[in-house]
Write a protein that binds this DNA or RNA. Structure first.
Length: 830
RNA sequence: GCGAAAGUGGCGGAAUCUGGUAGACGCGCUGGACUUAGGAUCCAGUCCUUUCCGGGUGGGGGUUCAAAUCCCCCCUUUCGCACCA
């Protein structure tokens, strides 16, 4: 009866959404205080690149954070949930070239469109704190960051071999080269020798690795990826000598215990040492020819050549300081210029790469490690190097030393003799941050013929981007062609000087934006120390896994640097990291503009309402899983909302119950008791699900509760209304408009998001009887009902007197009785 | 090649952290009710095989009274790294 009457209540989502979005706006519900006065919660989602409008992937990402923010509000915390735009970058320039717009026009127009869409979704962002990284008010402080790094010697210029994208005509950081190609346009990357700006992130390599252990709430895979990216390895540096010139040839090795097995040395083609070799003209020609050939190879070719290795003999020899032995000195492509010293000692018998190379060029092999004292290796029969630890042989005084112990001994000996030392090495390289493009923050440096590199004084920041005639990439920054921009007086000596014409990598902008949100209007500082002290660290940071070895390392680096110079207190910026899964199209393909399969949340929102779109997305799968979007999921949640959940307000009886009270189980009739227990179980489950961002199961718990709830069977009005209101509260973070509307229909006047999150009644999460399984030899044979926490004797007795069980016990003796309270009895018989 | 994660009905997924009645919740499907009609709503059913018994969480082995869950080997998929000496 109740249901029929209730069904006439129309779920007019459009009116509901409009009403509450306006109310929330006018009440400034999401406005976070400058300084929190209660427990704080900083909920951060990665800001967005404004490439067009918002799609399903954004939508999913942001509703996850939104539900967290709302849940935290209901837990009584001051919640900071800001949003902004990562607005510098190449696509704006491309659009500018194609459509003859200013990059700023294109960017701001996109921001406008996306912001409007986001506002329509009703996500609880505090829009007062919105930041746009390409605005002078923001990039002024990006430049300020550069200046601080420069002052500490952590921003510096050097000439080196860099990744060059011939399409975009700019240099790229290592992190932006994927499989030897430009991350953005997929053009194979070339190597060029150029003078560029770097941040000395390698100074922080140890802290960046070691502090990962202090982040228990970061996903293990991200931490592992960062460890490998930084790639710390321990070993020794040993100085070989070049015969003739006597120049030192230091090499890094993790296996000093194989040093007596060196049969040749190899230099990277790019190594400057190659030029200094005293080669005869015959060899010099060969080496030059080889070098030029190698440099023409693409990164892809060089990187993928894992099997085939080549090189050329220089005619020169190197001397092993341990044995005095002379070995051939080669130039080889497989030696990386940027790692270690750009040279290696080659031990074909104990290194797979050297093994292949030696086989190819018929270089001798020398065995200096045996697997153990019993087994000897035979070089003729070996098909690969023996690379494991073992016993040193043919190594003079070191013979018999084993593994790590051997490594220590050899290194100590070298140190004692002065031709070697312990050494740590990293794969991580310094972060190349200069770009030869227009749409970025100008590097705030002035090059003075007298004073050298001078930082722009802080009072003169920002260095504004000048207008330029066109944005076509030409291999140098478009800013270089603007005379009025370039020529400037030196801030130190007043003489004629020139501005640096490069702009910064956009990852610099995104390395500190989380701090600007704390104090976005501050004109005197990037942010006030007090806001940082009170709001940091970020409590939950949500974003895509794609940033694991880029942004998520950079921003940790910035945080550490800012701590070192006294601006923040914490070593780590984010306490917890959560990686959301991708949203694919229904066929399981990645959505992209070029494929034309981008799905917007707008259509679903228009047709069925925001909350149903949200619930559908939540219900589809746990938030960290990749999903294929399908409208099919909407059917279930829509039926649930329209037929079950929203009609709850029709069953509300206007009793205005006290929500802080608990009911006594003994005072309730059978049905009421069971629904009260169900309610408390649901509160427990839903709360736990919110904590771990598992919204799909939170929804199913609420579905069960509403399924079991039957107002007709409840006599007590207060009790009836109590259940309804608690259910609405539990739904609020996931379906905010719906819950707010229902909350008010139940007579409330304040926002549900200022109401208190339900706490479950610990004495009412269990029934006083339980159904437990009875197993015989581990197989379920029956089910019996017992009082909760029954004794073992009671349980076993009940189990053995069960007729079904008795059949299986017939004629057998009981060896063992296992009783797990409230779960099962297992009888082991024979 | 190295590293990580994951494999459960026709489908999305529960249960995995903490070993204890596998398949919650929903989609889809089947049958029924109500209807002029229904892509609406309601009710029932839905792992396989089936009276019972039995089998079943990618495959194989192990630990255990008991394994989707823990351990070992293998296969597959996804992601990351890709000559880092």
């Amino acid at each position: 009866m109740q249901q029929k009457q209730v069904r006439t209540l129309k779920y007019d989502f459009k009116a509901i959404e409009r009403k509450w979005q306006q109310r929330w706006e006018s009440e400034a519900l999401y406005r976070a205080p400058q300084i929190p006065s209660r427990d704080k919660f900083y909920m951060l989602v990665m800001f967005a690149y404004p490439s067009g409008d918002i799609h399903m992937g954004h939508f999913r990402n942001y509703i996850v954070g939104d539900a967290v923010a709302r849940y935290q509000m209901m837990l009584g915390k001051d919640v900071l949930h800001p949003f902004g735009w990562d607005a510098f970058g190449l696509p704006a320039e491309r659009a500018a070239i194609q459509r003859k717009l200013h990059p700023a026009q294109w960017t701001y127009k996109n921001i406008e469109v996306s912001r409007n869409t986001l506002k329509k979704t009703g996500i609880s962002f505090d829009w007062n704190r919105e930041i746009i990284s390409c605005s002078p008010e923001y990039y002024k402080w990006t430049q300020w960051m550069f200046v601080q790094l420069f002052r500490k010697g952590l921003a510096y210029q050097k000439t080196g071999w860099v990744n060059w994208c011939p399409e975009d005509k700019t240099v790229l950081a290592n992190e932006q080269v994927v499989n030897g190609a430009c991350e953005r346009c997929h053009t194979p990357v070339e190597k060029k020798e150029l003078k560029q700006w770097y941040f000395k992130i390698t100074d922080y390599a140890d802290r960046l690795i070691d502090d990962l252990d202090r982040l228990p709430r970061w996903p293990e895979n991200v931490k592992q990826m960062q460890r490998e990216w930084i790639g710390r390895s321990y070993g020794a540096e040993i100085d070989f000598t070049i015969k003739g010139t006597g120049e030192k040839l230091p090499i890094f090795t993790t296996r000093p215990d194989t040093v007596f097995g060196v049969t040749y040395m190899a230099l990277a083609p790019e190594s400057p040492l190659v030029e200094r070799l005293d080669m005869t003209s015959e060899y010099r020609d060969k080496v030059e020819k080889y070098r030029n050939e190698v440099l023409l190879r693409s990164e892809i070719e060089r990187a993928s050549a894992t099997g085939d290795k080549d090189g050329v003999f220089t005619g020169q020899y190197a001397i092993n300081p341990f044995s005095g032995e002379e070995v051939q000195l080669w130039v080889a492509d497989y030696v990386l210029a940027h790692y270690g010293t750009g040279a290696v000692m080659a031990v074909p018998a104990h290194d797979s790469r050297d093994f292949l190379f030696a086989k190819k060029y018929n270089i001798p092999m020398k065995i200096v490690i045996h697997p153990d004292n019993q087994t000897a290796l035979d070089p003729i029969e070996m098909t690969d190097a023996f690379t494991e630890y073992g016993v040193m042989v043919n190594s003079g005084i070191f013979d018999g030393s084993i593994g790590e112990e051997a490594i220590k001994k050899v290194t100590a000996y070298a140190a004692e003799k002065g031709f070697g030392r312990e050494k740590k090495n990293y794969k991580l390289r310094d972060w190349l941050i200069s770009r030869q493009r227009y749409w970025g923050a100008p590097i705030p440096i002035i090059h003075c013929p007298k004073c050298g590199q001078v930082a722009v004084p802080e009072d003169d920041l920002p260095v504004l981007l000048p207008e330029v005639e066109n944005y076509l990439p030409k291999g140098h920054s478009p800013l270089a062609d603007v005379k009025e921009f370039i020529s400037v007086n030196c801030p130190q000596c007043g003489g004629k000087a020139e501005r640096d014409s490069d702009t910064m990598d956009t990852f610099v902008c995104s390395s500190w934006y989380y701090l600007r949100y704390l104090d976005p209007g501050n004109e005197k500082e990037p942010f006030s120390r007090e806001t940082a002290m009170r709001w940091m660290p970020i409590d939950k940071y949500i974003g895509g896994i794609t940033h694991a070895t880029g942004h998520l390392i950079y921003f940790r680096f910035f945080q550490k640097f800012l701590k070192d110079i006294g601006w923040v207190q914490d070593d780590e910026p984010a306490r917890e990291l959560f990686n959301h899964g991708m949203v694919m199209d229904p066929k399981g393909e990645v959505m992209s503009k070029s494929k034309g399969n981008v799905i917007s949340p707008i259509d679903v929102m228009d047709e069925r309402g925001i909350d149903i779109a949200r619930l559908g997305m939540f219900f589809l799968a746990p938030a960290e899983k990749a999903v294929s979007w399908s409208e099919d999921v909407l059917t279930g949640v829509e039926k649930f909302v329209i037929n079950r959940f929203y009609p709850l307000v029709g069953a509300y009886r206007g009793s205005n119950p006290n929500l802080k009270q608990y009911f006594k189980l003994s005072g309730l009739d059978d049905y009421s008791r069971s629904i009260y227990i169900k309610l408390n179980q649901t509160i427990k489950r839903v709360s736990e699900d919110y904590e771990r961002l598992q919204y799909n199961t939170a929804i199913s718990a609420l579905m069960e509760l509403t399924r079991d709830f039957d107002s007709d069977r409840i006599k007590d009005d207060q009790f009836n209304d109590y259940i309804i209101k608690k259910a609405i509260l539990l739904m609020a973070p996931m379906a905010p408009h719906l819950a707010e509307e229902m909350w008010h229909e139940c007579g409330e006047t304040g926002s549900i998001f200022r109401a208190e999150w339900p706490r479950y009644d610990d004495s009412a999460v269990h029934f006083d009887t339980v159904k437990i399984a009875v197993q015989v030899n581990g197989k379920v044979r029956s089910e019996i009902e017992l009082r909760r926490d029954a004794s073992e004797t009671e349980a076993v007795d009940a189990a053995m007197s069960d007729p079904r069980v008795r059949d299986f016990l017939d004629g057998k003796s009981i060896l063992k009785k296992i009783y797990i309270p409230n779960r099962l009895v297992n009888l082991v018989v024979k």
